[in-house]
Design a protein around this nucleic acid. Structure first.
Lengths: 211, 211, 211, 211
DNA sequence: GATGAATGAGGGTTCATTCAT
DNA sequence: AATGAATGAACCCTCATTCAT
């Protein structure tokens, strides 16, 4: 059982993470200062260093749980066998987009490794690993959807699919609309995009077959 | 006719813009210092303030000509009637991608209005106008390609297409490969993406027709 | 008789002193942090403040016993009547040098009163007293060595002798060699220095006698 | 001819150097902050960075000219053939001591390379070179003084001599007396030290001869 | 028109120290 | 007796910007 002190400590840490998350998302990693985070978290800026080695560590501790949560959600959807593969693909797409929009330009950090230094492979690797796993998951569902072998073509299809999602994100991640409103308004368009792609993929396959 | 002094003055300005453009593209807006630009431009850092109100003004003055150049190039391709509409669409896509990659994180600035200030609407609007024109141009070529009316569906197709391009960009704009190498390696994939989309669009249209 | 608690308490204090001593000696007063000491002492950094008013107090409490130990060792050597006076002088020199080198930059603190505060005269005075006693002891042995009266000349000889030792120390106290290695390598040189001085002293005396 | 601006600039730089010199000498390199220097120099702390890359650069720019000046003075004395070698040696000693005392614990910096990092050899090397040259110069004069070959023994004598000087310095460099007063009071003692050493050296040589 | 000099605000980080438990 | 949490002061350093020339 936790003592009151421990509880307070965890609260502080939580508040720091929360403040940092919000600020990073709003302004981008580089543009947020430690003092700014501290202010929003309601503690001294030095307190942050009690819980995180440095600014970058804060970022990584912040990203990993979110990403892991995302991955689990996507995995769950991919396993729903009550849905058709195409429905699963759409579900995954929606979830992915919604998550990334909710975390706005944190998305940059997650997927573009914006703030990683080449000489520090460890933390980067973990994120990269997750990124790859998410990509692999999408590829898997896409394969189910198209009933095709796991070949070079599937890889390229997956890339195209991945581009599409990221394109949606980068197009909308700076808008100042609230997420639910945005999702409501654009979900049909997003769904259409997925549909188009699937149609295109299938057509491409049948073309290949006819060659 | 310009006096010699005026000429020199314009040269300096041009060099500042050139240096800033290169640096912003290479390192991103925030990571470039005024002194760095001045050094590359071969002038004092204070000189920059003679021509530009502040760092941000420099950025905006910088974006417009580039974007205009891009627009003209895209327009040119769209008018090449020796090419099939699909070839034109591919050409435009390649050009657009290459341009944005070459200007790397500038892309953020151009298309995501990252650094716009609320109090200065003018430049922002101009950029937005161009952005919309580029979008319209793509839509036009897409329409030619699909021989369809200019309706809601075309609009959504265009969005999907636009997403795809931006997705490619956001996926690759942080890689440390040189542009030519990158383009060589990924052009087939990019082309495939465009193909898939067109196939998907056509299929969607024929589905609609059969309803 | 001490209660178990008292015993534990003293142990902790002892460990703090030991850790601080080692660290100060190795890295210098300023470069050692309280937390570092606590870590090496196996306690929390706040515990240190239970036993010592502040960092400086720790330093002073630390210096005295060491210096006293040194003094006792030197005294012991000075009383070894199995040795010739010259051998005693050499022994004292070696011991003194070794001690100071082992305590490296602590030497600064001990002998140069680097970190003394004006408002707290007590500890400083004690250190000064010990310093003077060590000096007096060397003077005594030097007198035995030279069979001369305790006059102005002896005082100056003692100073010269003291300078020599300190010169050796200040020359070598920053080297990164281990003490035993260093001593082994340079002991002959140190011994030579002492010899030279004694020869010089004797010669000076005989010159004086002939005047 | 210098413009007024250039003149002012040089003045500022000079004042920074002067302030830094005094403070380093008084408190030691590590214990002096950039802001402290700026305050004493009457400028903003950022101004310091206009003239010096960083704190360490300031230190090195500060040390080199002084050291070079010292070296030239010592060299000059060593070449005065109106003086006996012994007089030259005494002169050199006095000059060296006076210089080092005037620069108080800067002496630490000069001769103990306190603040040098191993990875930056350049500046350290220059100082080391000068240090060695000064040592070589003393050795030369000592050789003239003793009319002996340049052998191992001479090297050890030089070391002993060098220790003696440094011993004097380290003994007195923390006192709060003014230099002229100090020199006046202790010069006879310093001279005596040199005398003693020379006598000792000569005696040692004659001993060797008789073996 | 152009520039070197100078600055204040702010960046991340470390530290000795205090407080509540 | 002992500790983890927390803090303010201070560290070096960089920046965009202004001022006098």
């Amino acid at each position: 059982m936790k003592s009151r002190q421990e509880q307070r400590s965890e609260e502080t840490k939580e508040q720091i993470l929360k403040a940092a998350g919000t600020l990073f998302a709003k302004k981008g990693f580089d543009s947020v200062s430690i003092r700014e985070i501290a202010k929003d978290a309601g503690c001294s800026h030095t307190t942050i260093y009690l819980y995180f080695k440095d600014k970058e560590a804060l970022l990584h501790q912040l990203s990993m749980p979110s990403l892991e949560r995302l991955y689990k959600q996507l995995l769950q959807i991919s396993l729903m066998d009550t849905l058709t593969p195409e429905a699963r693909l759409k579900g995954i797409s929606r979830e992915y987009i919604q998550f990334c929009l909710e975390n706005r330009n944190m998305f940059d950090v997650f997927f573009n490794a914006k703030s990683t230094r080449v000489d520090e492979l460890e933390p980067e690797l973990e994120i990269n690993k997750l990124r790859l796993e998410i990509f692999a998951l999408m590829k898997q569902v896409l394969q189910d959807c198209l009933s095709m072998p796991d070949d070079e073509l599937l890889l390229n299809f997956s890339r195209t699919f991945y581009y599409q999602l990221n394109g949606i994100l980068s197009t909308y991640s700076y808008l100042h609309e609230s997420i639910p409103v945005l999702m409501k308004r654009l979900e049909p368009t997003f769904d259409l995009s997925v549909e188009i792609l699937i149609l295109g993929f299938k057509e491409k396959i049948s073309q290949k077959g006819n060659e």
